[in-house]
Structures are given as C-alpha cells and as structure tokens.
C-alpha cells in the first residue's frame, strides 16, 4: 500500500512541487546581500587587519626595536634593523612587513611590550606594483597617525579583558 502511495506521489511530482513552493517563497523573501563598498558588516574591536606603528601622545615613536615581534612572527614577515639615536636610545632604522607573508595572527601585537605594532580594522587594501606588498616604517607610522583615535578606542575597549 505504501509502495503504491509512493508511486503515485512520485508520478504526480508531489515532492518536486513542494520544493518549487519553498524556493518560490524565498524569491519574495528578504534579501541578505550586503553591498560591500557602500554597506559593511559590523566589525569586532579585536579585528586583525592592516598593521600600524603607534606613537606616544608627545609624538615619540613607541617602538624600541626589541625585536620580539620579529622573533614571534610565525610567518617571518617582519624585518627590523636598529641603531642608537643621538640621545642614546635604541630605535629602528628599518621596520618592514611583507603583507604577502603575513597571516594576520596578531602575535606581533601580543608580544609588543610597548604597544607599538598593532593591527587595525582596515581589511580592504590592494597593491598595484610588485614590491608594494612590503610596507616600511614610514608607511606604518603614517597608518598609526591616521587611525590613532580608532586604534586607541579599540584598545581601551579590550583593556578589561587583558
């Protein structure tokens, strides 16, 4: 009896019609597309995007060239060279990050004793020439200057959990 019922059901395309009904309903349903450059999905304050080097409020750069980030980086994408400045402090002369090698794990930020290297919320960037993927100290500091407000706010929001 059940076999006959199944046979009739399949002959009259019953299940297929049910499927069509479902997709037909979705056609008039709400669309979930986010139109990216104009609309964006919400981001966490812990988002790990493009890197930046921060400064102290008095304008002094934070990085002291301890090379912890270079050591911890699992992708080995950070290259640091340092020397002594006239006032006797150690500073970097070179701080390069190869963004093709970087896996955006955030270990550099975790390891930094002075909160110099950070990862910002910026996730849509591109390069137009070969070699542009390696960003240097000036670019990193410029990023830090440009987004300092956002960076500081994100760090402050995360502070109670650290």
């Amino acid at each position: 009896m059940k076999a006959i019922r199944n046979y009739i059901k399949s002959l009259f395309l019953w299940e297929l019609l049910k499927g069509l009904k479902l997709t037909g309903r979705y056609m008039f349903g709400k669309k979930i597309t986010v139109q990216f450059p104009e609309e964006r999905t919400p981001q966490s304050n812990r988002f790990r995007g493009l890197h930046a080097l921060r400064r102290y409020p008095n304008g002094e750069e934070r990085c002291i060239a301890c090379k912890l980030c270079e050591a911890v980086c699992p992708a080995a994408c950070i290259t640091i060279e340092s020397e002594q400045r006239e006032d006797g402090t150690r500073r970097t002369t070179r701080y390069d990050i190869d963004l093709f090698k970087c896996i955006y794990c955030g270990f550099c930020e975790e390891s930094c004793p002075v909160d110099a290297i950070v990862e910002t919320r910026i996730m849509d960037f591109h390069f137009e020439k070969r070699g542009d993927n390696i960003i240097n100290k000036e670019q990193l500091l410029a990023m830090g200057d440009k987004y300092e407000k956002q960076i500081a706010a994100d760090r402050a929001q995360d502070a109670p959990y650290r």
């Binding site: 997709t23 979705y26 056609m27 709400k30 669309k31 979930i32 597309t33």
Partner: peptide
C-alpha cells in the same frame, strides 16, 4: 537575477 532572488541574494546590479 531570478536565481539570485531565490537564493536570498540580489544578483548583478
């Protein structure tokens, strides 16, 4: 467009 709408997308625009 139609397939996009059925899949809750909006298709090429």
């Amino acid at each position: 467009k139609v397939i996009g709408y059925i899949q809750a997308r909006i298709g090429p625009n």
